[in-house]
Design a protein around this nucleic acid. Structure first.
Length: 161
DNA sequence: GCCAACGTTGGC
DNA sequence: GCCAACGTTGGC
């Protein structure tokens, strides 16, 4: 099957830990959750079109003290319409979206690893090899690609248990 | 809490 | 399709 010979892609997913941290993810059933609430078109396109089952992602704590990469998750379900866009009670409700024409997408992710210590943004910034990383260049994108070399570099450079 | 960066909206 | 106004993100 084609999927088996395709390389995994790597991503970085941001979450504010006050809202949903890696500790929250560890405590939910099956350590699996719907990655919902993304309301940016470029991020949406990655969720809808590019992120595949078996891909891995860094779980990044944004708006945190300190901000940084807290662990790794894997994708267990690829893009499908974000259910919160249809829910009037959700803070992510979007009245312009319909089930026939969904506007926003989610994937399901499962916890793979919590790093024993956070890899802080400050440390990432000191690495010349990471100077082109989307996180350091286009800091506001909440779903962003990570190249294989960036992924490997980070796992090798930092003690991640 | 500030504010720079950047994304979205809407009048024209 | 431009661009000013406005809103959000997220580091600090």
């Amino acid at each position: 099957m084609l999927l088996e010979i395709m390389d995994k892609s790597h991503w970085l997913l941001k979450s504010e830990p006050e809202t949903f941290s890696i500790a929250h993810l560890r405590s939910v059933p099956k350590q699996t959750t719907c990655w919902d609430g993304v309301r940016n078109y470029q991020a949406r396109n990655f969720l809808r079109d590019k992120i595949k089952v078996r891909d891995e992602a860094f779980f990044y704590h944004s708006n945190a003290n300190p901000p940084g990469i807290a662990g790794i998750v894997k994708v267990v379900k690829s893009g499908y319409p974000d259910p919160t866009q249809f829910d009037p009670k959700s803070q992510y409700y979007d009245k312009t979206a319909s089930r026939d024409e969904p506007r926003w997408y989610s994937v399901d992710i499962k916890l793979e690893r919590v790093f024993p210590t956070l890899i802080s943004l400050e440390e990432l910034k000191t690495c010349k090899s990471l100077k082109d990383m989307a996180l350091l260049q286009r800091s506001r994108l909440s779903v962003q690609p990570v190249t294989s070399s960036e992924w490997d570099f980070i796992l090798n450079r930092f003690s991640t248990g």
